[in-house]
Structure formats: structure tokens, C-alpha cells
Design a protein around this nucleic acid. Structure first.
Lengths: 201, 201
DNA sequence: GTCTATAGTCGGATAGAC
DNA sequence: GTCTATCCGACTATAGAC
């Protein structure tokens, strides 16, 4: 693949990230993506055969980054710190990459006209692997017991809601309010209290 | 308004709920909505002047139901029980009305081509009102201190993720897994541990 | 009030010259 | 590899008969 090809593919994926994250799969148009990438529409379709293929390629290129926070939980670390790190990494990802976050959120909410068996398989594998780690920590009394899969998704979704500066927060607290700082404090409180060993009452 | 008019408007909104929740605003078409409602497309546009107006009317008709769980928090009740009731009502709403949940989630994620100032204003008013109630309970030491607005949204989003049987849960745990039962147990654990007065460590 | 028919627009995708 | 030109289908919305 030539240098110019690489550059154009990159420009297309970057433009697609913009459009798909703002308007969803249906709402984004090839016209917009081509314009944003500085290419004509036929030229766009020279690089990718269809809209679906652009979307698929985009998801594949983002998947590793997206799964990194959960993936970096280590069975060998101190349990609470590992879980807090997962939360902080995810929150940071959402802060610096809101568009990527919205792509995946939209995928979960509305699905896509094409399936992603490889993507689903990788998510399943990773979540189940980390759930085993969490359950082991609970068995050894290092953190309080709860359903590990629900815990993983709870942190996933709680951090997710702060993407794109958290629309609900902006609606309630003003257009220019940035909830990220408070978010970390709040989520650390939740997790510390939630996971403290031998819960009472 | 005649009886037949009322019946048709109702059929249209019901069909619109189906289509908008499955495909989003852009993805839904008037053809599908008209067919589902048993009307011709021009007849559909006799009742509502445009696609946007259908969407707007639908949101308005669902708003009260959607805000009811939060609205029913009473300053006079026992704090933890009131908050658990909010969580349970929201979870029940998500269980029996997944389509409605997806409509609002999609609105938050992608917005809509038309604004909803009245809707936003009502959400803002309600959240701020209940945040004051929560803060008062914290000041009186009845529940542990945390940011009340973040708490309200945390419960909102944690229950939300179980809508439509919770796609991520189904991907990881199998197509026919239903997380609702476990969800209530899990969320009650989270909230009890989170809100227990005078937290230690 | 409800229909058939269709106008006008825009979407994704292709053909073929250069 | 990139372009102009264009096809075709699907979409929202309107006109006008009944």
C-alpha cells in the first residue's frame, strides 16, 4: 500500500469517526464523510466498497483502545486499586476520546445493519476473564462480594455517561459545566464504599 | 376531536414508538410508521405535519411516565427506602417499557434535529428539586454524603443499562439471559453500601 | 378525512474518461 | 487513482380526486 493510500484511508476513518459519532450510522452520509476527508464520493468508495465497510473498519481500529481500561486489570495487583484504575482509565478515555465512546454507545443502543461477531467474541472473552479475577478476590475476602459481571458493566456505564461532557449534566447544571473532576471523586466514593470487605447492616 | 381521530393519533404514536425506538430518529421512516399504524402515508401527514412533529408529540406523551420514578421521591419518607424505591421504579419502568427507555437514551446520545426546551426545563427543575432533598438528608446525617446530582444520574444510568434486556449482558452471558432479577439485588447492594451513614476507611 | 399519484430531494453506488 | 456524470432507489412532503 502506497503512502498516499495510507494517508487517504486514515483521513477517511478520521472523518467517519466524526460523522458516525455525531449522527449515528444511519444519520451519517457518505457525502459528509467524503467532504470531511477531502475526497470525492466515488474516490471514497474506491478505498472502501461500502458505508458498512467503513463502519466495520472504524470499529476494528478503535476496539483495542476501547477495551484497554478493562484489559489492564491485573490479577496480581491490589484489588481495590486495580478496580479504581479501571475506573480512572475508562473515565480518562471518555474524556479524551468522547467521539469513540459515542460510537460504541450508539452501537449498543441501536445496533448496526451489519453484525460484528469478532467484536462480540472479544468483548465476551475479556469480560468473562476479568469476572473470574474479581470473583477470586471476593472469595479471598479482599473485596466485598457482588456479581462481578454486573460490577464490570456498572463501572463501564457509569463512566460512559460522562462522555461528550455529559449532556444530562449540562442540561441540569449549565452549558459550560464540566463534570469530569467531580465524576472521579464521586465514582471513587461509590467504589470504595461498595467494595469495602465485610459489609455491615 | 372525534373518536376516530383520537384512535388514529394513538395508533400513530404507538407505531412511532416502535419505529423510533428500534431505528432511531433518522432510521425510522414514515412508510414504516404509516404501515404499522394501518394508515396511508399522506393520511399520516394529515394528523401530524412532519416527522419531527410526530417525534415531538411522542416525547411529550412519554415524559411524565419517564420522570415518575424520580418524581416520586418524597422528602417525608425514610431516606434509604425512598432512594431504593426510585431505583426499583426506574428498573421496573425499564423492564416493562424498554422502547420508551431507548427513545430517551437515543435522544441523549444523538440529540434530535429539533430542540426540546420544555422537556429540558422540566428535567432540570425536577433534578434540582430532588437534589435539594438528598442534600438535606446528607446534612442531617441520614445518608452518607456525596454529590446528589451525580447520585441521581448514577441511578438513572445504572438502571438504564438493563433496558431491552441489556444487550451487553446478553452478548457476554448468552442470548436468553435476563439480568433484571440480579440487577435489583446488585443495585440494592450498591446503594445500601454507598449510602450507609458515616462511611469508614 | 382519506385516498392515489407524484413531485422534489437526497441517499448509496456505478460507469467510464483521463 | 481520481474525476465527472449519472443511475436508481428511498425518502419526506404535497396536490388533487373522491
Amino acid at each position: 500500500m502506497s503512502r498516499i493510500q495510507r494517508k487517504n484511508r486514515e483521513a477517511i476513518l478520521s472523518a467517519a469517526l466524526d460523522m458516525f459519532s455525531q449522527h449515528g450510522f444511519k444519520g451519517a452520509t457518505l457525502d459528509q464523510i467524503a467532504a470531511q476527508a477531502g475526497l470525492s464520493k466515488p474516490n471514497l468508495l474506491y478505498y472502501f466498497p461500502s458505508k458498512e465497510e467503513i463502519h466495520r473498519a472504524l470499529l476494528n481500529s478503535l476496539l483495542d483502545q476501547w477495551l484497554l481500561p478493562l484489559n489492564s486489570i491485573s490479577a496480581k495487583g491490589e484489588p481495590l486499586q486495580e478496580i479504581l484504575s479501571y475506573m480512572r482509565r475508562k473515565l480518562e478515555l471518555v474524556r479524551i476520546a468522547p467521539r469513540e465512546s459515542r460510537i460504541f454507545a450508539s452501537l449498543i443502543l441501536l445496533g448496526a445493519p451489519h453484525s460484528h461477531p469478532a467484536l462480540e467474541e472479544e468483548v465476551r472473552r475479556l469480560v468473562l476473564e476479568k469476572a473470574i479475577v474479581l470473583r477470586d478476590w471476593m472469595d479471598r475476602g479482599l473485596i466485598a462480594r457482588c456479581d462481578p459481571v454486573h460490577l464490570i458493566f456498572a463501572i463501564w456505564t457509569l463512566t460512559q455517561q460522562y462522555a461528550e461532557c455529559g449532556l444530562p449534566f449540562r442540561v441540569v447544571l449549565g452549558e459550560h459545566y464540566d463534570p469530569h473532576q467531580e465524576a472521579e471523586v464521586f465514582l471513587e466514593q461509590v467504589l470504595r464504599r461498595m467494595l469495602r470487605p465485610r459489609p455491615q447492616w
